[in-house]
Amino acid sequence: MTVVEILIYTCLVIGVVFNSLGVLGLLRFPDLYTRMHATTKATTFGSIFTSLAVVVYGLSMFFSQNASQYLNLAIHAFLAAAFLAFTNAVSAHAIARAAHKSGIKPMLAVVDRLEEAKL
Protein backbone atom coordinates (compact mmCIF):
# COMPACT_ATOMS: atom_id res chain seq x y z
CA MET A 1 0.00 0.00 0.00
CA THR A 2 1.32 3.40 -0.92
CA VAL A 3 0.97 6.64 1.01
CA VAL A 4 -1.67 7.90 -1.42
CA GLU A 5 -3.82 4.82 -0.93
CA ILE A 6 -3.62 5.14 2.85
CA LEU A 7 -4.66 8.79 2.53
CA ILE A 8 -7.62 7.87 0.30
CA TYR A 9 -8.75 5.10 2.65
CA THR A 10 -8.51 7.42 5.66
CA CYS A 11 -10.58 10.13 3.94
CA LEU A 12 -13.23 7.63 2.84
CA VAL A 13 -13.53 6.08 6.31
CA ILE A 14 -13.77 9.47 8.03
CA GLY A 15 -16.39 10.57 5.49
CA VAL A 16 -18.57 7.49 5.83
CA VAL A 17 -18.31 7.50 9.65
CA PHE A 18 -19.37 11.13 9.96
CA ASN A 19 -22.16 10.66 7.41
CA SER A 20 -23.50 7.75 9.46
CA LEU A 21 -23.26 9.83 12.66
CA GLY A 22 -25.32 12.51 10.94
CA VAL A 23 -28.02 10.06 9.90
CA LEU A 24 -27.95 8.46 13.37
CA GLY A 25 -28.48 11.90 14.89
CA LEU A 26 -31.36 12.50 12.48
CA LEU A 27 -33.02 9.36 13.81
CA ARG A 28 -32.16 9.74 17.51
CA PHE A 29 -32.49 13.39 18.52
CA PRO A 30 -35.79 14.51 20.07
CA ASP A 31 -36.75 17.64 18.10
CA LEU A 32 -36.22 19.54 14.86
CA TYR A 33 -33.44 21.92 15.90
CA THR A 34 -31.20 19.31 17.50
CA ARG A 35 -31.73 17.04 14.47
CA MET A 36 -30.62 19.92 12.32
CA HIS A 37 -27.39 20.18 14.31
CA ALA A 38 -26.60 16.58 13.46
CA THR A 39 -27.50 16.74 9.78
CA THR A 40 -25.94 20.06 8.78
CA LYS A 41 -22.63 19.61 10.55
CA ALA A 42 -21.97 15.90 10.27
CA THR A 43 -23.20 15.25 6.74
CA THR A 44 -21.45 18.35 5.38
CA PHE A 45 -18.19 17.31 7.01
CA GLY A 46 -18.53 13.70 5.85
CA SER A 47 -19.32 14.70 2.27
CA ILE A 48 -16.36 17.10 2.23
CA PHE A 49 -14.11 14.21 3.23
CA THR A 50 -15.47 11.75 0.66
CA SER A 51 -14.94 14.44 -1.99
CA LEU A 52 -11.44 15.02 -0.64
CA ALA A 53 -10.69 11.34 -1.27
CA VAL A 54 -11.69 11.88 -4.92
CA VAL A 55 -9.49 15.00 -5.07
CA VAL A 56 -6.49 13.06 -3.72
CA TYR A 57 -7.14 10.23 -6.19
CA GLY A 58 -7.43 12.61 -9.14
CA LEU A 59 -4.27 14.53 -8.23
CA SER A 60 -2.22 11.36 -7.72
CA MET A 61 -3.38 9.93 -11.07
CA PHE A 62 -2.64 13.28 -12.74
CA PHE A 63 0.92 13.35 -11.44
CA SER A 64 1.62 9.68 -12.19
CA GLN A 65 0.00 9.46 -15.65
CA ASN A 66 -0.07 13.13 -16.69
CA ALA A 67 -3.58 12.85 -18.18
CA SER A 68 -5.54 16.10 -17.90
CA GLN A 69 -8.90 14.39 -17.32
CA TYR A 70 -7.79 13.44 -13.80
CA LEU A 71 -6.90 17.06 -13.02
CA ASN A 72 -10.38 17.93 -14.25
CA LEU A 73 -11.91 15.30 -11.96
CA ALA A 74 -10.05 16.70 -8.94
CA ILE A 75 -11.06 20.31 -9.65
CA HIS A 76 -14.71 19.42 -10.22
CA ALA A 77 -14.91 17.30 -7.07
CA PHE A 78 -13.36 20.13 -5.04
CA LEU A 79 -15.80 22.66 -6.49
CA ALA A 80 -18.75 20.35 -5.75
CA ALA A 81 -17.63 20.02 -2.12
CA ALA A 82 -17.25 23.80 -1.78
CA PHE A 83 -20.75 24.42 -3.16
CA LEU A 84 -22.12 21.70 -0.88
CA ALA A 85 -20.69 23.27 2.29
CA PHE A 86 -21.95 26.74 1.35
CA THR A 87 -25.46 25.70 0.30
CA ASN A 88 -25.97 23.41 3.30
CA ALA A 89 -25.21 26.23 5.74
CA VAL A 90 -27.57 28.66 4.02
CA SER A 91 -30.45 26.21 3.65
CA ALA A 92 -30.12 25.11 7.29
CA HIS A 93 -30.53 28.73 8.38
CA ALA A 94 -33.53 29.14 6.05
CA ILE A 95 -35.32 26.06 7.37
CA ALA A 96 -34.62 26.91 11.02
CA ARG A 97 -35.95 30.44 10.57
CA ALA A 98 -39.05 29.24 8.71
CA ALA A 99 -39.75 26.53 11.29
CA HIS A 100 -39.52 28.99 14.17
CA LYS A 101 -41.79 31.40 12.30
CA SER A 102 -44.36 28.68 11.67
CA GLY A 103 -44.57 28.07 15.42
CA ILE A 104 -42.44 25.01 16.13
CA LYS A 105 -40.87 25.46 19.55
CA PRO A 106 -37.57 23.87 20.57
CA MET A 107 -38.27 20.97 22.93
CA LEU A 108 -36.48 20.77 26.31
CA ALA A 109 -35.27 24.34 25.82
CA VAL A 110 -34.04 26.14 28.93
CA VAL A 111 -34.34 29.57 27.28
CA ASP A 112 -35.84 31.02 24.07
CA ARG A 113 -34.76 34.62 23.42
CA LEU A 114 -36.21 34.70 19.89
CA GLU A 115 -39.67 33.99 21.31
CA GLU A 116 -39.20 36.83 23.82
CA ALA A 117 -37.96 39.27 21.18
CA LYS A 118 -41.10 38.71 19.02
CA LEU A 119 -39.58 39.41 15.61
Binding site: G15, N19, G22, V23, L26, L32, R35, M36, T39, T43, T44, G46, S47, T50, S51, V54, A77, A80, A81, L84, N88, S91, A92, I95, A98, A99, S102, I104
Partner: peptide, 21 residues
Protein backbone atom coordinates in the same frame (compact mmCIF):
# COMPACT_ATOMS: atom_id res chain seq x y z
CA UNK B 1 -43.70 17.97 11.20
CA UNK B 2 -43.04 19.32 7.70
CA UNK B 3 -39.58 20.84 8.50
CA UNK B 4 -38.46 17.43 9.79
CA UNK B 5 -39.25 15.96 6.40
CA UNK B 6 -37.44 18.82 4.68
CA UNK B 7 -34.21 18.25 6.59
CA UNK B 8 -34.47 14.51 5.95
CA UNK B 9 -34.82 15.27 2.23
CA UNK B 10 -31.86 17.64 2.48
CA UNK B 11 -29.77 14.88 4.06
CA UNK B 12 -30.74 12.49 1.27
CA UNK B 13 -29.74 15.12 -1.30
CA UNK B 14 -26.35 15.65 0.34
CA UNK B 15 -25.70 11.91 0.39
CA UNK B 16 -26.76 11.60 -3.26
CA UNK B 17 -24.27 14.33 -4.22
CA UNK B 18 -21.47 12.66 -2.20
CA UNK B 19 -22.13 9.27 -3.79
CA UNK B 20 -22.37 10.83 -7.28
CA UNK B 21 -18.86 12.25 -6.83
Amino acid sequence: TAPDRVIALDTVNTLVIASMI
